[in-house]
Every structure is written in structure tokens, then in C-alpha cells.
Design a protein around this nucleic acid. Sequence first.
RNA 1: GGCCCCAUCGUCUAGGGGUUUAGGACGCAGCCCUCUCAAGGCUGAAACACGGGUUCGAAUCCCGUUGGGGCUACCA
Length: 467
Amino acid sequence: MKIVTRFAPSPTGALHVGAARTAIFNWLFSVSLGGDFLLRIEDTDRARSEERFERQIIESLEWLGLKWQGEIVRQSERLDAYGQLAEQLIDEQKAYRCYVTAEELGRRREEAKKRGEVFRYRREWSQLGAAPGKPYAVRLSVSSGEKIHVEDLVRGGIVFDSSEIEDFVILKADGFPTYNFAAAVDDARMEISHVIRGDDHIINAPRQILIAEALGFGKPKLAHVPMILGADGKKLSKRHGAESVTEYRLRGYFPEAVLNYLVRLGWSFGDQEIFTTEELVEKFSLKGIGKSASVFDSQKFLWLNGKYLRDMPEERISEGAIPLIVQRGFPEPSPERLRKIVAQMRERSETLNGIVDQSLYFFTNDFEYDEKAAQKFLVEQNGEIFKLLAEELHGIEDFSHDNIHGGFERVMERTGLGLGKIAQPSRVALTGSTKSPGIFDVVEILGRDAVASRLARAIDFIKSRNA
RNA sequence: GGCCCCAUCGUCUAGGGGUUUAGGACGCAGCCCUCUCAAGGCUGAAACACGGGUUCGAAUCCCGUUGGGGCUACCA
């Protein structure tokens, strides 16, 4: 059997990490088995679907490197097909027109709830309010008292009682299919062999099976993967903060890291934490998927991204950093200088944005002193050190790490102080804070002029403060 | 409420009857390295939800309880 999977997002928002993981699982499954991975846009909710979301989802998929085969299928472009199939079911008496409005139904549901009853649509209401030309929905006739067996590749067999399922709508009054109908029809039409989707769809499985059976279509194999929960244990959603792939891209995460983190949420391969994409393709299988929901841990995600950051070819980091630097209003540094900054900062950051945000003092002399740091280190006796240091560094011909080290050594000799006593105040004078790469590296990257002016600035600062 | 799913450290997970003093990872704590911060290395604290079975033996199998989650739309 040819393996065909699909990712079927509805364009009602950015690509959510939960949806992204579903896409990743489908993609990995098909790629690892030499099958096809298709993309279908489920834009049957006219009110909520927007084209910009579709574009955003596609962009995220491309960014993650999830390539699909063939044309994108849009359900909104296939209205005729769903309509026809619905008509066919009506002709075969497997479905019928329902004239009861959604509002009326809502009212009845309310009432039933008040009485503590479970509301289920009854066929006898179908002619309620029927009139020529009046809009209607199409409902599937569901006979009660039957067992519907769902074979799930992750969970095993699940049995539903058809009595629990009302005659649900397959075609809305606006002529659009409902999710269940469109999905069942398209999965068959696109010859999807395996449907891998979130746990929250388990409940839809029997309905889609009913539709496929009514239509005489084959049924794809099903695999329901556990959901991703927020830190509060609830279904991950907008209120959990950064939850879209776009968001993480903008925060300076790498696509490989996003892929790696997401795939490990709910799937595992022994003890392994880090996977290249090639390894994932090689090692992925449905067997590794767990059954319980997982909590999205942004700290581990950050750590993983940092891991990738430390391993990544330098050029790629530099390339990614340039726009961020420019975006913050600084001129683009020379490649050599950027290379040095990146080499230092990649050890101290987790994301691309982190690198840039933590190295602002490399790009401007006009930075603020950290208040506590200034309090402690920009004091009278250190002013003398800055003067000596300025002298020693000024005389250095070749402004390299080793020669700078020598300059510091001479200051140490002249003052009788240890390196720490000199480096730390200098760090504050040069970077405004007590945290930075090694002081010789900082000095080298800054260059003679910036170092001189910053030391002078610190000396002035001390003076003005004492005045 | 009804239906469905799930249950190993705080979190992601390994383990699927004896190999287990339950392993790894994030996070946390300590130590080492060290000019600070990181990175890196080492060490530590930290879990089989509970109750019944089955079995010579159960984290592993079964049942129940409890807890959590999902769905309950002319949303997907």
C-alpha cells in the first residue's frame, strides 16, 4: 500500500505548535516510508478562515522544511463536490434536509441542559419549519444501537455506541460542508492511507467512519497522538503566550530546534534528545509515540535551541544576526567583527535574538551603566586603574587578544593587583555590566578607539559622581 | 451531566512481568574550571496516584477508585 499522509490545518490562526507537531509526525511518517505528504487547507468556516493565516501557515511549514507533494487542496474550492455527495446521500435516504435553524437548536439545547438531559437531534424535527426556498442543512441519518469500532494505531481499539451520536450536520445551510464531512470525503478522494492527528479528534473518528461507510469509501488508518498541554495542564492555546511557529521564528529559534523539540514531545527514541532531521527520518515510527498528553516546557525548548546555537556553523548565525542588528538601528558590522562577536556570544545565549540583545554594547558607545555595577565598580580607586589601562593599551601596536593580555599584565604589575581586581571594573567601564565575554576578547572586539573613549567616559563618570 | 482518552521525578521521557538500589534529559542545588557571565565537566535532591486482584514474583497484566484532559456546534 502506498503511504499517503496529509496535514489539514484550518486557516483560522497562525501555525500552532500543536498543529505543527501533527504536521511533523505526518511528514516524518510519510518521508520515512517513502510515501507522500499532502497539504489540505480546511477553510470551511467562512467566518474564521482568512487568507493571511493560510499564507502564514504555509510559510511556517516551509521554514520548518516540511515539503508537501502536489497542489494544495482547498476545501472552499470543492463545494460542488461536497454538495453533490450530500445530494447523493439524500437520494439514497442516508441523509436528509433539516430546516430547524441553528438558533432554534441552541434554544433546545439550553432547555435540555436545564432539565439535566442530554440533547440529541431527532429526525422527526427535520420538517420543522420546512418551506420551499427556505435554507436547510443536511444531516446524516445515524441508526442507533450499533457499535462503531475505531482501530487506532496508537491507542488500539476504541468502541463507540452509535446511540451517542445524533444525526449530525454534514452540509451547512450556507452550502459549506462541515469539518467531518469534508475531511472524510477528502481523505478518501486524496487516497490518504494514514491519518495522524491530535487526540482531540478521537471523537470525530466514528462520525467520519459513518460518512465513509455511507458513501462507500475506504477508510484510512487512524493514529491519534496525545495533545500538547500548557504549563497549567490545559489544552495549549493563545493564552499560553508564544504558541505559534512564527512567534518562535521571530524570537530567534532555529527550525531544526523547533522540529527537534516538538517531535520529542510525545515521541521518543530511547534516551536520545538531539536528532538531526536525517536521524528523525531514519528513526521515526508510530511505535515511539506515547499515549499521554505532554506539557510544553519552554525552558527545555530554550535549552535545546541553545544547544543548536552552539553547534551551528558560524556563518549561519552571523547571517541570521545581521538583520536583527540592523533592525535595532545599528550599522552592519564587518564580517570579521561579527564573527568574533558571534563566537563569544553563542556560548552565552540561547537564541539569535538573545545574541544580539546581549551584545548591544558592541554596537554602540552609548550604553547605560548597570546601576548596581556602577555603584560598586565605577569608584575613585578604579579610576586610577582605568588611566593605567588606557596608557598600556594605547601603546599596543597589534591590538590582538595576546597583546591585550600583556597590557593587562603590565597594569597588574604596576598596581600589584590580581586580574580580577582589574578585569571586573574594566568590564563595567567597557560594557556597562558585570557580565560579558572574557575581558581580553571584549577589548579586542571593541578595538582601540572604543576602548579609549569608554575608559575616558568611565573616568569622567567617576569624577562627576564625586563632584 | 454524558461519551471518550490518559496516569513513572516539577517537566519531557526510558523501561512493557524477574536484568531496577527505576535510567536519561530540562530545570533545581553543590563542586570543579575561572577575570565576570556563560559554556563544559562532576555530584546530589527528585517519580512508578491509590486500592484490590492475577503471579513464585508487578512500575510492567486485569478490575475499581481517584485525578487530569478532550469532546459534547450548521468550529475545526
